[in-house]
């Protein structure tokens, strides 16, 4: 069986413990995610982001989003998502893995993982830190 493919190139680093790749603005130092593309990219330097952060907000996705653009499985499985604050860097929107709604608390510690959100396709997610 072939390895699952990332949903997009350049979203995270190719290392044993991957990190999301943001961009740091060359003049202002502001950090954004994802790394900008096209003409905007010239103003930013790629920056691997912290793999840990704290939960900023969350919700559930209880019905299947429309396709397109959603490319998750036809047999929809509800999932959790939210924003995780990477300290001093940026607050990223993300799938939330390894938790149920009642586990989630503002400010709880979270860590980056990769998940197979659709057969053969991976994306990033955060889960409560062990």
């Amino acid at each position: 069986m072939s390895m699952p493919l990332p949903v997009a190139e350049g979203l995270w680093t190719d290392e044993a413990e991957p990190r999301l790749i943001g961009g740091r603005h060359m003049q202002t130092g502001e950090i954004v995610f994802p790394m900008p593309e096209g003409d905007a990219a010239q103003h930013y330097a790629p920056l691997p982001l912290s793999p840990t952060g704290t939960l900023w907000s969350w919700t559930s996705q209880d019905f299947r989003p429309k396709s397109p653009p959603y490319t998750g499985p036809e047999e929809f499985v509800p999932f959790l998502l939210g924003y995780v604050e990477l300290p001093g860097e940026v607050i990223v929107e993300t799938h939330i893995e390894g938790a149920v709604l009642s586990d989630l608390k503002l400010g709880m510690a979270m860590e980056l993982v990769l998940i197979e959100f659709a057969p053969g396709r991976t994306t990033f997610a955060f889960r409560p830190s062990a």
Partner: peptide, 30 residues
């Protein structure tokens, strides 16, 4: 909404995070 119309990368919509209803829920949850 489609990602391209909003200047956003395709993966954002593909992974199911581009819904207005999610935004409202995330804002009020916090």
């Amino acid at each position: 909404a489609q990602p391209g119309d909003w200047g956003l990368p395709e993966w954002y919509g593909e992974t199911g995070m581009m819904l207005t209803t999610q935004f409202f829920a995330l804002k009020i949850q916090r």
